[in-house]
Every structure is written in C-alpha cells, then in structure tokens.
Nucleic acid binder design. Structure first.
Lengths: 227, 227
DNA sequence: CGAGCGTTTGAACAGCGTCAAAACAAGTGG
DNA sequence: CCACTTGTTTTGACGCTGTTCAAACGCTCG
C-alpha cells in the first residue's frame, strides 16, 4: 500500500490512457499498466472493508484515501494515507488486511487483481514491480513502527508534517484529514495532536492560518525533532 | 546443511563464489530452493549492519536472530525475532533497512541475493514466492504497528507471549532473548516488561519457573488481553 | 441566527519512564 | 569451597507525558 507513513513515492499523475479493450490503462508501477475503471467516492465512504475478499487493486486519482485496521473494542489504527498516484489495496492473501475509506470526496481507479497476478506470472519485470510495491509498503510501515515504538508526541507530529510537506509544493501543507484521523495514524489522541500543533506554533516552527493549513517555518528544527 | 566447518570467518565468503555446484540447497520458500552456505554466529555477533549493501538473503538454521533499527541518539527498535526456519534480510533496495544480530549462538544459511533475483526473473512461481515473503513480513509489521499504536503494556507483553507460544510445543515457552531485547521490540522499558511479567504471574495467567522460561496457564485470559 | 461539527483548551488523573538499589545467577580465581 | 566479579532481572519511589473528562470556541450551513 503506497502511503504516507514516512517516505514518499514520487507522485506520478499521468492521466488514464485508452487501451484497446475500451478500458483506460491504469499505471500501477513502472512497466505495469493494466486496464481498469475509475470510480468516485464520497467523503467517508468505504472503498473496501477489512477482511473482505481482495478482488481489486486501487490507485488514487484525486483526493485522499485512508486504510485502517479496527480492533473489536473500537480502537482504530490508520495504517496510511494514500495521496494521488499512490497504489493501495494490493494483497497477496485472499482478503484485505485493512479497510479503505475516502477521507474527502475522491476518485479511485480499480484494476482486477487477477489481471495483475497473471501479468506478473508471465512477465518477470512486472513481477519485480509487484515485489517493489510490497517492499516499498514494507519500508514505510517499518518506519512507522519505529515512530510508534520510540518517539514522543512532538516527534510523531513533526515527522508527519515533514512527510506531508515532501508531497506538497513549497512550505504550505493542506491537510485533507481531520485531527481524529491524524491521531489514529500517529497513535495519539486528538487532544494531544491539537496541543502539539499549538506548541509547534508557539515555538515558531509552524504557522496555522487555519486548522487544516500548516506552514512549515523551520524545517531544520522539525527535522531535528524527527529521527 | 550443517556440514560446513567451523572456522569460516564472517567476512570471508569466497567459497560461495567458487563452487556453487557443491553448495547445499537452502529452502527459502515453497518452490524456491537455492544453493548457499551455513555460517555460525556467536551471541550478539552482527550478521549484517544497517545500511550495508544487501548482498545475501538469510535463513535461520538454529538459534534466534534479531533485526534492529537504530536511531542516532541510541534508541533502538527490534523489528522482529527470527526463529529456525525463518528467512530474513531479503531486500529489494540496495541496502539493509535494519541490522541483524545473533541473540544467542546460532547458525544461519546465506544465499546470494543475485541468485534469488535471477530465479525470480526466470520463473513466475519463484517470483510469487518472493512476493509472498514480502507480504508476509508486511502483515507481521502491520500487526506490530497496531500493537504499538493502540495497546498498553500488558497487552503488548501478552500478545508477544502468545506469538512465541504459537511457535513452541505445549504451554512452555523458552525465551531466547533478554528483557532488554523484548522491551525494545514491544516499545517499552525493561522495567515495565519485568513488572508486567510479575503482574501476569500474580494474576495466575503465567508461571515463571525461571526468568527466561514462561508457562502459559490461562491462554484464554491472555488472548482476551490481546486484540 | 442557531445547529452541528470539528478544534482548542483546561484540570485532574493514570500509566509508563526514570533513577536508584537490591536480588539473583553464572563465571573466575584464590 | 569461598570471595569476588559481571551481567541480568526484579523491585521501589518519584516525576513526566499523554489520556480522560469536560467545557468553550469557531467554523460552515441551514
């Protein structure tokens, strides 16, 4: 699952191109373009559910998608946020490990997983692309475990902001997700996230023109907080 | 597989390149057996270092191996413990994400990564096996993030004990790792881990014949603590 | 204007970390 | 066999960080 755990894949927003079979081609990875369809989703709409059969692979065309895992008692962990260009929902097993939901209104491309797997079986290069997708996700999740295991609230928020900034232009970051989503991603409560924001603002490391808009004023100091 | 003699120093790997034909086969996954060599490591000896070129793939023959990632300030995160039969150190990128060290004296099989990759390129089944290895790691790390993000100390220790028990016979678990390793794996301190053990013992959920030997007396209660 | 939602802020609390010391085990040398 | 060392584990007292609970604030949209 391409995502925003820490490091960031290059955002490649090439438009859907027409294939012979009338379905547009979806770019899943370098050397792996397969026919699929685009689908719109509304804010908070579920794209697929945890433990549901994994029939499709997805690519974000616009908006933001979150993938979450839920515990029986309601505690929730947001695995990752997926921005335009990111591929998510690719499983090797039968079912989806997490659910996927639209953070805001968004558009997503669907590709049949069977098509992906048969392409990988035929073509060694496609197979390697698949492996690369998996290990990319792996590294991002690993970095997340390090953050969750060993870092304090300030470091957790700072590293998130830096990761988001790496996918934006300039120093202004528009957060598409709520404090709640952010807290569930960083293993904190919304109150702690909010307090950390205001604290970073008082330290002149960021500015907050509005709750969802963050300006990075001192990248160096933020990076020092990060590991 | 255990046949290779005593004194091949860790850094001298020339026998590998010389006589591939005479090397024993190492089982990396179903349908993926490749020639490699066995090597012994002493307690706490480094098998490979973080950010070092990833030239080999490894399989535990005996003992336990830990893979760790270290922050600049010394904070350490133990990604995983690898028990006999486990494959570790397989990377897609150029370097190792984490370092690997012997928890106790152990023996490990080494396979050239180039051999693995070329097998995967030729053979779709081998390629899928590689993908499966990566997604298996991915799922394990994902479960770890959930634990670290949302669970308390008791739950963290309980789920670890259950995971270890799943790889042992019966209800007795012999921990090969120190409290320190355990703490760095679960995102806790050694004091908290120790206190949690004695607390679980007082609740009659476990017995502690010795610090490293744990008897699970109430799996149900332990599982209830887990998510 | 008021309703509803998301965000911020405050005060009291709890859990885990920190520091310090004691208990324990295993190995070494006299 | 004992005294001594070294490393690991356990236990205790205390403080900090983040959570919980509660209330106020500030949007946006009827």
């Amino acid at each position: 699952m391409h995502g925003l755990s820490v490091s960031t894949p290059p955002t490649d927003l090439r438009p859907l191109t027409r294939s012979a079979a009338s379905q547009p081609l979806v770019h899943l990875a370098d050397g792996l373009d397969l026919p699929g369809v685009a689908m719109p989703f509304l804010r908070n709409e579920e794209i697929y559910g945890q433990d549901e059969p994994a029939e499709f692979v997805y690519r974000v065309l616009s908006g933001t998608v979150r993938t979450c895992r839920q515990l029986a008692d309601g505690r929730r962990q947001v695995e990752a946020f997926h921005l335009p260009g990111d591929v998510f929902g690719l499983e090797c097993g039968a079912v989806h490990y997490a659910s996927a939901e639209a953070v805001g209104d968004c558009e997503v491309a669907l590709v049949r997983r069977a098509a992906v797997e048969s392409a990988a079986h035929r073509d060694g290069t496609a197979a390697r692309a698949l492996w690369l997708l998996a290990t990319g996700d792996l590294e991002r999740v690993r970095r997340l475990t390090l953050t969750l295991a060993r870092k304090g609230a300030t470091e957790r928020v700072a590293s998130f902001l830096l990761a988001m900034a790496a996918r934006s232009e300039g120093d202004v970051v528009d957060l598409s997700m709520s404090r709640n989503d952010l807290a569930d991603h960083r293993g904190l409560t919304i109150e702690t996230v909010s307090r950390t924001f205001t604290q970073l603002e008082r330290c002149r490391m960021i500015a907050l023109p509005s709750p969802r808009r963050v300006v990075l004023r001192d990248r160096r100091a933020l990076a020092a907080l990060d590991g």
